[in-house]
Write a protein that binds this DNA or RNA. Structure first.
Length: 132
RNA sequence: AAGUCAAGUUGGGCAAUUGCUACAAAAGGUUAGUAUUCUUGAGUAGAGGAAAGUCCGAACUCCAGAGAACGCGGUGCCGGGUAACACCCGGGGACCGGUGACGCAAGUUACCGGUUACGGAAAGUGCCACAGAAAAUGAACCGCCCCGGUUUUCGGGGUAAGGGUGAAAAGGCAGGGUAAGAGCCUACCGCUUCUAUAGUAAUGUAGGAGGUCCUUUUAAUAAGGAGUAUUCGACAUGAGAAUAUCAGGGCAAACCACACCGGGAGCAAGGUCAAGCAGGAGGAUUACCGGCAUGUGCCGGUUCAAAAUUGUUCGUUUUGUAUGCCUCCGGGUAGACCGCUUAAGUCUUUCAGUAAUGAAAGAUUGAGAUAAAUAAUUGCCGUCCCGUUUUCGGGAUACAGAAUUCGGCUUAUAGACUUGGCAAUCAG
RNA sequence: GGCGCAUUCGUCUAGCGGUUUAGGACACCGCCCUCUCAAGGCGGAGAUCACGGGUUCGAAUCCCGUAUGCGCUA
């Protein structure tokens, strides 16, 4: 597996998995409340790993802005997933993870850049890594 | 060269690294195997003019349906284009603007440009607040005129020229006429209609006809009759009947009548395969003997199978479950696949047409995702702004993201380019 | 993705094209009542009828477009 890739198999795809994460998972917020992450840890020794998704609610902005937000979140996770992934695999568990913008929206932040999103996501990943 | 208006085109470029989606050469694992399946993956391709709003029109799919009508909805100057349209093109009318000419002026006319939901108000129904005498069965408040009483004033009648109200007041204006007035009469304009002509048509242009005549009444616009026109009737003619013979204000984005169009729902349409759960059918559940009982099971013995004990065998002990097991069936959930991108396609040339558009020939294949790819970072260049003014630094670079597919409309949009009109300024 | 509906004082709503720059209830403000509060009574303020065009003499109402909100649909 490539160290910086992010293929379809590492994504949450089905509606059932999403519903399980939203109903049973816990929520983490970034330092400036701009990003939130909902996560769920399950024992799965046969197939450990991380499954991730990026969701932006419709009131945050128009389609162009929502697409850009998801791409930035995905890019940040892709570059930094090795902070968490080896620990999760070693402990024999499976981690479901959904990233969403919390206070960010198109009205206040029309032109958003990667260096505004990166530190927020990094702090969330560090908090998660401390749990293994 | 700058300004403004209109029409059209375009919608930043190049490179590096790391990634994503689709197709996929090839390599490796699995295997009897170039089935299958898993891993890696060179290379190629990867948002728009509006992809948007979902406002119209279609293709396609399912449902309903002999056909037609009613109902409901839509469209509405004329002609053409189109698969179709509420779209497009051309023409006409109306309204608005600009320029020129004529004119003292109001205005008229020619050219250019723009806007236009622009059929019917004489089939019928309805509405027109307030004000005003009266808002439609054709009207008398003030005023004007006549008559009677009476001379402060009142009553009866005539009159739509003037005043006043209103968004809108009963064709306009001039002359004649009159007691005063009035299409009451006449000219011009308007309106209706006929003919000719241009045109496929809407419509334009030219010409004609239409505001009757007689009687009663002081006088008539009132009443009656005649003539004329149309329709019915009759048909060899004619008699006869009805309607009309210059208003009948506006509203149909009020109901409506007329002409034409439309069956309904929508790719989350619909189809194929199909775990699990539930349902139906069938089968197996060792064999034999004895007893009870006979729906079907239970008990005991021998045998059989599995497990435990033991190094192994014998032996011994336990178990042999029926709400469970196996096979098949139809419908079908999760899920997967098809629909899904070669089509009213795109580009070029020629021809036909004022144009929209059509025809022919040649070339070409340019996204196909599904919690949903088309990205991130950096460098250089282009455009714009600010500071500094060789240079350089900083910032900005619109509107906006495919979701079955097309044709339109509407809305959003920084900048750049092309063509034409207008105005008449600056420089040479 | 597709289909449908709505928008009127701070909130919930009524409203024949005209006497309506819009009525009512709750909430708000002032006064009365009460020892005080509540309840009750009287009075007041508060709406560019979501926005932009059009039809009409006249539009919250009819028509068209835009914006926002909501519902249905596997």
């Amino acid at each position: 597996m490539k160290s910086q890739g992010l293929s379809k198999k590492e994504r949450i795809k089905s509606k059932k998995e999403f519903q399980r994460v939203y109903s049973e998972g816990n929520t983490l917020f970034s330092p400036r409340n701009s990003i939130k992450a909902i996560y769920l840890i399950v024992d799965d020794k046969s197939n450990p790993g991380i499954r991730v998704a990026f969701a932006v609610h419709k009131k945050a902005g128009k389609a162009v802005w929502r697409n850009r937000m998801k791409r930035l979140l995905r890019e940040t996770y892709r570059l930094n997933k090795n902070l968490v992934l080896p620990k999760v695999v070693d402990s024999g568990k499976r981690l479901f993870l959904v990233f969403s913008p919390n206070s960010l929206n198109e009205k206040d932040n029309k032109k958003i850049h990667l260096n505004e999103v990166m530190p927020e996501v990094l702090s969330i990943l560090n908090k998660l890594a401390a749990q293994f």
